[in-house]
């Protein structure tokens, strides 16, 4: 099942890896502005989601890591076994997992900003 040429997929893979690396550095630096345990307190988590710039960063990081991680998983699974049906299932499964993870993570950010949490 060839949706995109493999070279395009791998460019996305390397691009998302570098992007995620960059955003993870900013993300960790932001965590250093307070003590480690404070980062995990309910009010602070909600405050992070409500700050628009930081929420966009977290949303982007979620997308980059979901795309990269599920494509990475697809690569691993394609090397572990082969066959047309199996490969189709792997591709569909990984795309579905990617979409589901992005949707679930975005939902938390959106619900917070709509005052639902």
């Amino acid at each position: 099942m060839m949706v995109l040429r493999e070279s395009i997929i791998m460019k996305i893979h390397y691009g998302t890896a570098l992007g995620a690396l960059f955003l993870t550095v900013i993300h960790i630096m932001m965590r250093l502005t307070q003590d480690f345990h404070e980062s995990l307190e309910y009010e602070n988590v909600i405050a992070n989601y409500e700050s628009v710039g930081y929420a966009i960063l977290l949303g982007l990081l979620l997308i980059l890591i979901s795309v990269h991680g599920f494509n990475g998983l697809r690569v691993i699974l394609l090397e572990m076994n082969q066959g047309p049906t199996y490969e189709k299932l792997v591709t569909i499964g990984c795309l579905a997992g990617m979409a589901a993870l992005i949707a679930y993570g975005s939902r938390t950010i959106i619900m917070t900003n709509m005052g639902m949490l």
Binding site: M2, R5, E6, S7, I9, M10, V75, L78, E79, Q82, E87
Partner: peptide
Amino acid sequence: IDESHGIWR
């Protein structure tokens, strides 16, 4: 060589 079991593996 640019396919799912080609060079990128």
